[in-house]
Simulated scan of single mutants.
Amino acid sequence: MQLKATLALGALLMSGAAFAQTKAPEPDYALSYNVGAVTEYRYRGISQSGKNPALQFGADVAHKSGFYLGTWGSTISWIKDSSIPGVASAKGPLELDVYGGYKGAFNDLVSFDVGGLQYWYPGNSYKNITGENANTFELYGGVTVSVVTLKYSHSLTNLFGTPNSKGSGYLDLSATFDLGNGLSLVPHVGAQKIRNFDTYRDWSLTLAKDVNGLVISGALVGTDWKQHFDAPYLLPGSGSRDLAAPALVVGLKKNF
């Protein structure tokens, strides 16, 4: 009996070793993508869609070394809404972002992310309004310690068609709290310095629920634009709607 038990144990160990040896290796690349919609598209606190709903999508490719490439897009209206009736008109219904960079970690607690991001507005004619194209390029760098992330973005071009704004910067402080059961809470504060203009601040608080890759979110978003400049953020095409006023933004996104 002892001999049979020994042989059986040896066979089990050998089969386990063989299974471990044939286990599929970690893939060099990982592909992910998503599609979704929001009740309005807010960026750095300001509505990019005239406080109307927007469709959004994204795709990312990441290498196991830490390098990554990605793209993200959304419908927008701010370029068209900037048209001045009877004076100048502009078009550009889509924002398409292309980015790439490197993510790494110093240890289990501290990680970093550096890269570049091109904001591209295909076929836009925003220079009819300001004399500058809306396309913008930024370099960014961020450090995450536990659940807190500090990130800085610096424009190497004029910022979204604002004349003489090359060298503008955005500082972003956020945290991601895992509440369990697919729930997360993300508070955020940011400061956008527009060179040769001024600085405004934005904030948000986002609660999200992930159900097997389907993410439902609600975010309270706002800025100090009206308080800081003593005027609402208005565009000719958006009427009297303050595009920087506090609002609740609801989103639905599916991750694949």
Rank of each mutant, 00 (worst) to 15 (best):
D172G: 06
K80D: 15
G73D: 07
R241T: 09
M1T: 03
L179S: 08
I129A: 05
Y33C: 14
V145I: 11
S32T: 11
A17P: 04
S82P: 03
D202W: 01
N212T: 14
I194F: 00
T162K: 12
L12A: 07
A30F: 13
T39I: 01
L252E: 04
I84E: 02
L150E: 11
K127R: 08
V249A: 11
G70S: 12
V110M: 02
W72I: 00
F177W: 07
A191I: 06
R42K: 06
G10Q: 15
L9P: 08
R195M: 13
L9Q: 15
G213Q: 09
T176F: 00
H63I: 13
K226T: 11
S217E: 07
T176W: 03
T176A: 07
A105R: 06
W78C: 02
S32F: 09
K4G: 05
S168R: 08
R201N: 13
S240R: 15
P53M: 01
K209Y: 05
F106I: 13
Y140G: 10
H63S: 14
L185D: 08
D172W: 13
N133T: 02
Y68E: 14
G86W: 08
N164A: 13
T206M: 09
S49M: 03
R195W: 04
L220S: 02
Q192N: 10
T136G: 02
P246Q: 11
G50C: 02
H63Q: 14
Y119E: 05
Y200V: 11
I46M: 00
Y43K: 03
H228E: 10
K51Q: 10
K51S: 15
S240K: 15
L205G: 04
S82D: 09
L243N: 04
H228N: 15
S238N: 10
F57I: 10
G180N: 12
L220Q: 10
G251I: 01
N128I: 01
G92F: 07
D210Y: 04
I129W: 03
K91P: 04
Q48N: 15
Y170W: 04
K253M: 06
L235D: 06
S204M: 04
H63D: 15
W203L: 03
L214M: 08
W120F: 14
A18W: 02
V211D: 04
W225N: 06
S165Q: 13
N135S: 00
G190S: 05
T6A: 12
F229N: 12
K254L: 07
T162Y: 08
D178C: 12
S89I: 04
A8M: 13
K151F: 03
G131H: 05
T157M: 06
S184C: 01
A62V: 06
W72Y: 05
G116D: 11
V211P: 06
R241I: 11
T144E: 02
M1D: 13
I84K: 01
G213S: 11
W72E: 09
G251Q: 02
V61S: 03
